[in-house]
């Protein structure tokens, strides 16, 4: 394991940002810390980096106890949401900063910076100031700067949060490819579940200062530990006392099914290739989504009586406030 966090607690005044958090982050992988804003994921990342110190608990990086080490001795690269570019230095000098601090020979620095400029596709911008770059370019520069010192782990705090949707999507794919090339243990914070599911090898879901679940994107999506994870990772709808994904709800007409619930189609909305059918079962409204082809084959419309059921084997989670919290960390991996 590359990063070992055990029993970390952090308070800011009365606010508990992290409460007895333990996480192991494997080497060489891309791990996402996913959760809603204010849930403590950025605080956890900053504690790993040494930009904050935990009130209790320990942080180990590559087998070294880093709990009390200052940031500069941890061998971590950190990328900030708002780039933290050194505004008075050119792109080249920004990337060279860590190497200059380490007093590497000039030739070596130039060579290494050239490599990194190529890696982040900023060769032609080497002599510009950060103010002359776009947001995406600045973030790539910040990434090259962090990679220059060959960190043991690379930490990214909402790295694409300040970018517009299109650039964010491009950079996220690019980060994945970059990681496949560079293979440095990487942890990034995001509140965007799509970003985490698409990019990460491993996802740690954090909410209200606690770890809700740790697992691969598939595990989290298919076997959510509780209703919070279920709700946070994608759309949900409720059938009886169960939370289920709308695409795992099927509708049938006519045939009697002992497991199905009878209902009436209340509304049909078509969004591109997807059709959303709202079915009223009397006490609740269930949402079912399907492709347009499936919808046409079903042949229903507002007012039609249908049977509603969950696809056998689909992930369901009982609806309840805190009772499912007992299984915070999923034992089965």
């Amino acid at each position: 394991m590359s990063i070992e966090i055990t029993g970390v607690t952090k308070r800011f005044g009365d606010f508990v940002a992290l409460e007895d958090v333990s996480v192991s982050i494997p080497s060489g992988q891309l791990t996402a810390l996913l959760g809603p804003s204010g849930g403590g994921k950025s605080t956890l990342l900053r504690i790993i980096a040494g930009l904050e110190y935990a009130d209790a608990g320990t942080v180990g990086i590559e087998g070294l106890d880093a709990t009390h080490l200052p940031a500069r001795k941890r061998g971590v690269g950190f990328v900030f949401q708002h780039y933290a570019a050194f505004k008075h230095l050119s792109v080249r000098r920004n990337i060279a900063f860590g190497l200059e601090i380490r007093k590497r020979p000039k030739d070596e620095i130039r060579h290494r910076v050239d490599e990194l400029l190529a890696l982040v596709h900023l060769e032609q911008f080497a002599e510009r100031l950060p103010a002359q770059l776009s947001g995406g370019q600045r973030q790539r520069m910040a990434l090259a700067r962090a990679l220059a010192v060959e960190p043991k782990v690379l930490l990214l705090d909402e790295p694409f949060g300040a970018l517009d949707a299109k650039v964010r999507k491009e950079l996220r794919e690019w980060l994945r490819r970059l990681h496949d090339e560079v293979h440095v243990t990487t942890v990034f914070v995001t509140h965007d579940q799509e970003e985490a599911l698409e990019v990460a090898d491993e996802i740690v879901v954090i909410n209200e200062g606690r770890v809700e679940q740790i697992g691969s994107p598939d595990q989290l999506y298919d076997e959510p530990a509780n209703d919070f994870v279920m709700r946070f990772l994608g759309p949900v709808t409720q059938l009886g006392d169960l939370l289920v994904r709308p695409h795992d709800v099927t509708l049938t007409t006519g045939a009697d099914d002992p497991d199905a619930v009878a209902g009436r189609v209340a509304r049909v909305v078509r969004v591109g290739f997807e059709v959303r059918v709202e079915v009223s079962t009397g006490e609740q409204v269930v949402l079912a989504t399907m492709t347009r082809t499936e919808f046409l084959r079903l042949g229903v419309d507002a007012g039609t009586t249908v049977s509603v059921r969950v696809v056998p084997g689909a992930p369901v989670v009982p609806v309840s406030g805190s009772s499912v919290r007992s299984g915070l960390e999923v034992p089965a991996r």
């Binding site: 500069r72 941890r74 050194f86 900063f97 601090i101 910040a142 962090a146 220059a148």
Partner: peptide
Amino acid sequence: TEQEQAAQSLGATAAQTFRRITLPA
């Protein structure tokens, strides 16, 4: 403080951070 924190995570001491980042800013 982000530029200063970035400098520190890149290995700069407090004095180096002041001279190279804070003072120019």
